[in-house]
């Protein structure tokens, strides 16, 4: 009897790629990767029916290490490639892994329109509040007043809330988790994969090397503890006042609705159009008119 961790390490990772991975010591990306692998393992999906797409950034390295069908695409276009894959073969379960800059800045338009169209894709967005790979520039999710290489006196703009953006844009499943609540994250990702429709999981992660060091938030351990202290479940957050909710964020399922999926609607209309075209051709043949193709 093998442990779950052993199965994941032996069967789901690409050992010909260089392990240990490139992420910094204590980076949350590894924890998200583990949660994703555990979720897919518990759903008993085979490795051939999952496609993992990613953009550029620290999170873009994730498909390199996982032994699914993977594609490492251009910056911010992870969802567009995923949409194409889903249209070509709707039986695949497509997962798109993005960072916060990848999803909301460079690919922001793709993100909101994928949510509006409601395509059956799972988007996992790792939010570490900075552009970690390029050297700690501010991103759309950098909090007001925090320091980065491009805002040395404090950031003057306000931050996006990715999960709420996805709810407003019309995603059918929106969840938010942190890397501290890892087993909760398993369940969220599992629910997101099984949910029919565009499902978003925002994962609050730590970048102690670029973001934490500049804002004196401490190392990986201290940032993890801050996630533990600041995370409030959705049920508790309803009873709390806005003053109490300052500097805190909600975790859990923020939206879970059912609505028609655009790619399936598109296929249905395609089939309808084909049938109508056949009828026209048959009528013409019956009346003695030659078909154009012949």
């Amino acid at each position: 009897m093998r442990e779950e961790a052993e199965i994941i390490r032996q069967e789901y990772l690409r050992h010909d790629k260089k392990f240990p991975h490139v992420w910094c010591p204590g980076c949350g990306n590894g924890i998200v990767m583990g949660a994703l692998l555990r979720a897919t393992h518990n759903l008993k999906l085979s490795k051939d029916e999952i496609v993992l797409a990613s953009g550029i950034g620290c999170s873009g390295r994730m498909p390199t290490y996982i032994d699914f069908n993977t594609v490492h695409t251009t910056h911010g276009r992870s969802l567009t490639f995923a949409t194409g894959i889903k249209l070509a073969n709707p039986e695949l379960s497509v997962i798109s892994v993005m960072g916060d800059g990848d999803a909301t800045a460079i690919g922001g338009n793709h993100f909101i329109h994928a949510a509006r169209r409601n395509i059956n894709i799972t988007a996992i967005i790792i939010n570490n509040s900075t552009y970690g790979m390029t050297g700690g520039q501010y991103s759309p999710t950098t909090p007001y007043g925090s320091k980065s290489t491009t805002s040395v006196y404090g950031h003057v703009e306000h931050a996006f809330s990715i999960a709420e953006l996805a709810v407003t844009a019309g995603a059918s499943f929106v969840g938010r988790g942190t890397v501290y609540h890892a087993s909760h994250l398993d369940k969220l990702i599992g629910q997101a994969i099984t949910k029919r429709g565009f499902s978003v999981v925002e994962v609050i992660s730590n970048c102690h090397v670029q973001h934490g060091r500049r804002n004196k938030l401490g190392g990986a351990v201290e940032m993890m503890q801050s996630f533990k202290n600041n995370a409030v479940t959705v049920g508790k957050a309803e009873k709390m006042t806005t003053e109490e909710m300052e500097d805190k964020f909600t975790i859990g399922i923020l939206a879970d609705i059912d609505k028609p999926i655009s790619t399936e609607e598109y296929r249905r209309i395609n089939r309808q159009a084909e049938r109508d075209a056949d009828k026209v051709v048959k009528a013409k043949v019956k009346n003695g008119v030659k078909r154009y193709e012949e």
């Binding site: 961790a5 390490r9 204590g26 980076c27 990306n29 583990g34 949660a35 890397v179």
Partner: peptide, 16 residues
């Protein structure tokens, strides 16, 4: 409890 296993970013811990 396997709390260390699920929080290890480097897949380096096994609890048996």
């Amino acid at each position: 409890c396997r709390f260390c296993v699920i929080h290890c970013p480097d897949f380096a811990i096994t609890v048996k």
